[in-house]
Design a protein around this nucleic acid. Structure first.
Length: 501
RNA sequence: CGGGGUAUAGCGUAGUUUGGUUAUCGCGCCUGGUUUGGGACCAGGAGAUCGUAGGUUCAAAUCCUGCUACCCCGACCA
């Protein structure tokens, strides 16, 4: 059967609408804006230049924030001895399934085929890190003797592997890139403060840089990282009404120091177990950016993370030879002005594509501003400035452009954030009736602020009815007594329910 | 991991029910020319052991079996 719509989408290089099929839309955006692709190895993705440069920009910014707050970068090995892995009981419980394990060190040729050399079996099997607590704590044991050795505030940029049941590009891949922070402290108070400090850094990074508003909170006891005392998190609301956890910070208490026997001598000469934290954000953030801001015409990137903030497109006319050099001249002049302002700008003067083609291409890629330069601009001495976020064109002089362009980028950044914030607010309600809860969760999704009796079975039942779970227990709001929305039992505060990724 | 679906050129597809010459069409790609203010046009050209490994048959894209990958739904997911 001839599918006219499919044909049309392909012919016009359009993507599926969000309202038709949200996950198809998501996948097509990633494909058509050339962010990444699946590699043919189940659940592993290839990040292409445009997608990877987004990660590089985010990494650079977050790295600065972490360093400014006193953290230092380190690098620990990718492979972790299985024995050190199993020291921490709770930890083992989580990752006993879903790890990649290295058992051999050699391949040999056998009948023109490469096979594993059975002779090369490793005495001690190695686990590809799903997270690095165990190997890091093995080293901390060497480095920590006295309170004078503390705190240790380390961060590592690297990759990790978790063998997932179901993968989604950027959101849950078997391999992901991330930063993992691992800190050690002499007091509980200091470690908790560290966790909260990191949560605030993540929040600032998410809201001011990625333009994604978040809720801060802690995970309920059944959802926290098993090796932690408290798991802090930030959650964001996506356009389809599902929540995405975009950052995590664990207060690990003394769990790891006890498991790895890491003690220090305190000021009074007494031995004490070290207090610790760990925290991370990953390439999942790119998925969050896509799902928070983009529309049916493609990606929308907040200027602060856009690899290209402004694209300059020339519009040539072959009938006037000297006109072309004037267009180039003006374009390059603008290019240099913008470069001086430290704006990431590109001049696309390839003749193999028409201006119209380029317009759609850079809209698909989410470039915040486009400036097109043709004979009109030269004649009128006004520039056409196009905003990706609002789809509006404006015409201003070169002088005004020079003066206001940085401000315009900031305005776009703000507008994108504001839009996401308005949506999140609209999708967040306080409810006390379970029928209303079910109806809204089914129809709209979103965050629902409701009372919970503290029983994990209650959540299971709610999940069966609605697919929603508790995303977090808010830190700074919802502190009021009430009755559980499901059971009617007493509740000390409201929690956030949502469907999630 | 359970249920469902899909796999034909770089991409999207026709053909598969009912096996039968040289596998259809569009986009993209290459060459030349004309174009260029919202996905340009004309002419010519290249590109496919039909996902993979077997099987049935005189004959397989088409029928059967295994495997692999992807998509959707669920379970799982610091």
């Amino acid at each position: 059967m001839f599918n006219y719509l499919l044909f049309f989408n392909d012919f016009m290089n359009r993507i599926t609408k969000r309202s038709e099929n949200y996950s198809k839309w998501y996948n097509e955006i990633i494909d058509k804006s050339k962010l990444a692709e699946f590699s043919g190895i189940r659940g592993f993705m290839v990040m292409k230049p445009y997608g990877y440069s987004i990660w590089e920009i985010m990494k650079e910014k977050l790295d600065k924030m972490l360093k400014k707050s006193g953290h230092e970068n380190v690098y620990f090995p990718l492979l972790i001895p299985k024995t050190s892995f199993s020291l921490e009981k709770e930890h083992t419980k989580i990752f006993s399934e879903g790890c990649a394990i290295v058992t051999h060190s050699k391949l040999i040729k056998k009948k023109e085929k490469l096979v594993i050399d059975p002779e090369s079996r490793l005495q001690e099997e190695l686990v590809v890190r799903p997270t690095s607590e165990s190997i890091i704590w093995k080293m901390y044991k060497r480095w920590i003797q006295s309170y004078r050795d503390l705190p240790i505030l380390f961060n590592q940029w690297g990759n990790a592997i978790r063998w997932e049941m179901r993968t989604r590009i950027f959101l849950r891949t078997n391999e992901f890139l991330w930063q993992e922070g691992h800190t050690a402290h002499s007091t509980k108070k200091e470690a908790i403060e560290e966790t909260k400090k990191i949560l605030n850094i993540y929040t600032e990074f998410s809201e001011k840089f990625m333009g994604i508003p978040v809720l801060q909170g802690i995970k309920p006891y059944m959802d926290k990282f098993h090796g932690s005392d408290t798991t802090y998190c930030i959650e964001a609301m996506m356009q389809d009404g599902k929540a995405l956890q975009i950052g995590t910070a664990h207060f690990l208490g003394q769990n790891f120091s006890k498991a790895f026997n890491v003690q220090f001598t305190n000021f009074h000469g007494k031995k004490e177990y070290v207090w610790s934290t760990s925290w991370g954000v990953s390439t999942r953030l790119i998925g969050a950016i896509i799902m928070s801001h983009s529309d049916d015409n493609g990606l929308i990137l907040p200027p602060k993370i856009a690899p290209i903030q402004i694209i300059i497109v020339p519009i040539y006319h072959n009938d006037h030879g000297e006109e072309e050099s004037k267009i180039d001249e003006l374009s390059i002049k603008i290019l240099n002005i913008l470069k001086e302002k430290k704006i990431r700008v590109k001049y696309d003067n390839r003749k193999i594509f028409t201006p119209g083609w380029k317009f759609y291409e850079y809209e698909m890629k989410g470039v915040p501003i486009r400036i097109s330069i043709g004979k009109n601009e030269i004649k009128n001495e006004k520039l056409e400035i196009f905003r990706r976020d609002t789809y509006k064109k404006m015409y201003i002089t070169l002088m005004d452009m020079k003066k206001n362009i940085t401000h315009l980028l900031e305005e776009i950044q703000k507008n994108i954030y504001q839009k996401a914030l308005n949506r999140t607010k609209k999708m967040t309600v306080k409810l006390d009736d379970y029928n209303d809860f079910k109806e809204r969760m089914h129809r709209l999704g979103g965050f629902i602020l409701a009372h919970w009796d503290g029983d994990k079975n209650t959540v299971k039942k709610i999940q069966n009815d609605t697919e929603a779970t508790i995303r977090l227990i808010p830190i700074s709001f919802g502190k009021e007594k009430g009755k559980c929305i499901y059971s009617g039992n007493n509740s000390s505060q409201r929690v956030i329910f949502s469907k999630s990724y």
